[in-house]
């Protein structure tokens, strides 16, 4: 469903889109900051899946749940601190952004 390549660590993504559920509301292409979705032929299409940064905006705003993504922070510091503390979900610390 999504182009996979071993070339870059950032070309794989957890973004999944089920076109059969889509109503063509256009919300996903509105909220995505990387132009991952476009609207074509009345439904959403994945235009640049490898640009996805897993922010979760599209999935959260898709009323019919056609999109799923393992959303979270793309911050190495937060992830390393989380694994040191043994917490599952990395979030930014208070001193951060």
């Amino acid at each position: 469903m999504i182009g996979r390549s071993k070339k870059s660590k950032y070309l794989e993504t957890t973004l999944k889109y089920d076109a059969t559920l889509c109503t063509g509301c256009g919300m996903c292409s509105t909220v995505c900051p990387h132009g991952v979705f476009v609207q074509k032929d009345g439904i959403a299409q994945l235009a640049r899946p490898t640009a996805c940064m897993e922010c979760g905006a599209c999935a959260l705003n898709c009323a019919v749940r056609a999109i799923s993504v393992d959303a979270g922070t793309g911050c190495a510091t937060a992830q390393m601190i989380a694994s040191l503390k043994g917490s599952k979900e990395p979030t930014c610390g208070s001193g951060c952004c």
């Binding site: 660590k9 950032y10 794989e12 993504t13 957890t14 900051p33 990387h34 640009a51 996805c52 940064m53 897993e54 393992d70 959303a71 979270g72 922070t73 793309g74 911050c75 190495a76 510091t77 937060a78 992830q79 390393m80 990395p90 930014c92 951060c96 952004c97």
Partner: peptide, 22 residues
């Protein structure tokens, strides 16, 4: 520079995770 991922608006959670492991 690995930690700089947090300051950029395009790195993903799964991508950073793979990068840390590697």
């Amino acid at each position: 520079t690995l930690n700089y991922t947090g300051a950029t608006p395009f790195t993903s959670k799964s991508g950073v995770k793979r990068e840390i492991f590697a």
